[in-house]
């Protein structure tokens, strides 16, 4: 299996500020990867670099191309929604479909029409007349109708209500995803995507702090809820983060000794959201 995205020492500076600081990561074909990080961590810079929208330092290959230099070619095989509501206000829905059908060799009009048929949106509406959620639906329909190898989504469901969000993720997994495709997704709603991700990349201060498949998280990390009187003993096992919860203390361990930990309390695999909080807050403490 070859890496679809390969970044080595990926660096992006804005003046003196480092948005990406020698970030290393790779994404393989057929995965659904969540790029997760706090605001200002470098998520957007990483996505912009991958999509060829910005110059960068270091080595970056996407679909065996150099994104910034070969954006046009890359966009035949990769598509993206880089932000919500970027479809221009004057554009009509049918014009948007005609345009993409006209310029994109991998666009399937029937698919876009089928996706739009599930919504309340008609072809003659202009973007300025649509709500933020409807605009997002149009953009998603356009993007998901492209037979791309790589789909990049930056906060794709922002502004959508819970029903539309569920419908979107269901469609993404059931109708869109197959083993030839790869999806890279950023979102603040970690809980919502947790079940569909195969891999996570945690990014903080421009660096990748965790690069793991969901399966590996179960073997690499463990959390134990410990009663107050046994915390000291549990701390001896070197947790990297702890937090109080309902009179107990939850301790997080990397490369855990599961047998020992079982003696302190109930051991479980932390959720992606919990692990994210633990990883990023832990670094501070």
């Amino acid at each position: 299996m070859t890496a679809l995205i390969e970044a080595r020492d990926l660096t992006k500076k804005y003046g003196a500020q480092l948005a990406l600081d020698r970030a290393n990561f790779s994404v393989e074909t057929g995965r659904i990867v969540g790029l997760i990080g706090p605001n200002g961590a470098g998520k957007t810079s990483a996505l912009r670099a991958i999509l060829g929208l910005t110059a960068y330092e270091g080595r970056l290959r996407v679909l065996n191309r150099e994104p910034f230099r070969e954006r046009t070619e890359l966009m035949r095989d990769a598509c993206f929604i880089a932000d919500v509501a970027v479809l221009p206000a004057w554009l009509r829905v049918d014009q948007a479909i005609d345009f993409v059908a006209g310029v994109h060799p991998r666009f399937r009009r029937d698919r876009a029409m089928a996706l739009l048929a599930k919504t309340q949106i008609t072809g003659k509406r202009r973007m300025r007349e649509l709500s933020k959620g409807m605009k997002t639906q149009v953009h998603l329909a356009l993007t998901m109708a492209i037979d791309a190898k790589l789909l990049v989504l930056d906060e794709p469901t922002l502004g959508l209500d819970i029903l539309a969000r569920r419908a979107f993720y269901d469609a993404l997994v059931n109708d869109y995803m197959d083993e030839t495709r790869t999806i890279l997704i950023t979102t603040h709603q970690v809980e919502e995507v947790e079940n569909l991700l195969t891999d996570v990349l945690f990014i903080d201060k421009g660096r990748i702090v965790l690069d793991s498949s969901l399966d590996d998280i179960g073997t690499r990390y463990a959390a134990v809820a410990v009663a107050a009187d046994r915390v000291e003993a549990a701390r001896a096992e070197k947790p990297f983060f702890e937090r109080r919860m309902l009179g107990k203390v939850v301790l997080y361990y990397e490369q855990p000794n599961l047998e020992k930990l079982a003696g302190f309390g109930e051991v479980h695999t932390p959720s992606v959201a919990d692990l994210f909080v633990a990883k990023l807050s832990g670094a501070v403490e």
Partner: peptide, 13 residues
């Protein structure tokens, strides 16, 4: 209007 992000997602130089 940030629509440049849409136009640049098309394979057009």
């Amino acid at each position: 209007d940030r629509s440049v992000l849409f136009w640049k997602s098309m394979p057009i130089s």
